[in-house]
């Protein structure tokens, strides 16, 4: 067996990005932060996909994470980034623990539609809520970091650093998790639930846990997105947001956490670049990319890497 260097590679890239952060142009740092916020949500989705479940509703928790950070600043007077993110973790954890009791009984299209339905309910509620800015959303406080309040543009450097550490940190932990007993349990549930039950394990238990973890990671992503852009709006819960997460997972493939993080970065850069040269057709362009990926690389871009490694 090849020695697994993934953890080391992820750690090196993490450190390199944190160090490079202050020297990057502001636009690049922003795109990077958003990409890593998405990566966190898609890393959660990865857990579900490996369990055989495609959620078209991760936007629900992405939005909860964003709004929790927003409300924490606006109504609770909090400014600490960690406290704002923790609010999202707690809120998404509680809500997913409850919804998970229902959703862990459903599979395939029913799971996908149910998860989407819940995110659209939140979208509807927030759009009607005057207090939370209805369809416009509201602005998020400028965060501080454990008592340290960086000035002006430096805040964004810190948010970027936080995004890097969280995305890669989660990546390292998940990489370990995928090879653990619970990690393999996902694939076992995906392939054959009857066998899993006859090995003494509840498939619903496995699904419930993965659902809750995925929710918490989506909320972390949403929180980072809120701190990076300084604004939250109900479109975070809209189904197209959830759709983008699924897109990223398909783009990268689910074989490795590195696939997800790279795909999130590639996606955000393609989106930014195409929007600039042709503001009204970027969805079409992404659609074509998706089509090509599904037709020629059904296991995502990561499979290219595996193919190259085999060839050499």
């Amino acid at each position: 067996m090849l020695r697994d260097r993934s953890t080391l590679a992820l750690a090196i890239v993490m450190v390199a990005l944190v160090v490079a952060g202050p020297f990057l142009p502001a636009w690049l740092r922003f795109v990077g932060t958003v990409a890593l916020a998405n990566a966190l949500a898609v890393l959660g989705l990865l857990l579900l996909i490996r369990t055989g479940l495609v959620s078209f509703g991760q936007g629900l928790y992405y939005c909860i994470g964003g709004y929790a950070a927003g409300v924490g600043g606006k109504d609770l007077g909090l400014t600490d980034a960690f406290a704002l993110l923790a609010l999202g973790i707690v809120a998404s954890g509680i809500i997913s623990a409850i919804l998970g009791l229902l959703l862990c009984r459903y599979r395939e299209i029913f799971f996908a539609m149910f998860s989407m339905a819940f995110s659209m309910i939140l979208y509807g509620l927030l759009s009607k809520s005057q207090k939370l800015g209805s369809t416009d959303g509201f602005n998020v406080v400028t965060p501080t970091f454990l008592g340290y309040a960086p000035d002006g543009a430096n805040v964004k450097v810190w948010v970027f650093g936080l995004a890097v550490v969280l995305a890669f940190g989660v990546g390292i932990v998940l990489h370990q998790h995928l090879r653990s007993g619970m990690g393999y349990a996902s694939e076992a549930v995906r392939d054959n639930e009857i066998r899993v039950e006859y090995l003494g394990v509840s498939a619903q238990y496995v699904v419930w846990w993965k659902y809750v973890l995925a929710a918490v990671l989506a909320a972390l992503g949403g929180g980072i997105q809120a701190l990076a852009s300084g604004h939250v709006g109900p479109e975070m819960a809209y189904w197209t947001t959830s759709g983008e997460f699924v897109f990223i997972a398909l783009l990268g493939g689910t074989a490795h956490v590195g696939a997800i993080i790279s795909a999130a970065v590639i996606f955000e850069f393609i989106k930014t670049w195409v929007t600039q040269i042709s503001p009204y057709t970027w969805q079409m362009f992404l659609g074509i990319v998706l089509l090509v990926i599904i037709m020629f690389l059904p296991k995502g871009l990561w499979s290219l890497l595996a193919r190259m490694r085999r060839a050499s």
């Binding site: 998790h177 007993g181 003494g200």
Partner: peptide, 11 residues
């Protein structure tokens, strides 16, 4: 992992 362990490992 499933039958021998009382609880599946996370990491």
């Amino acid at each position: 992992g499933m039958m021998r362990a009382h609880r599946l490992s996370w990491l």
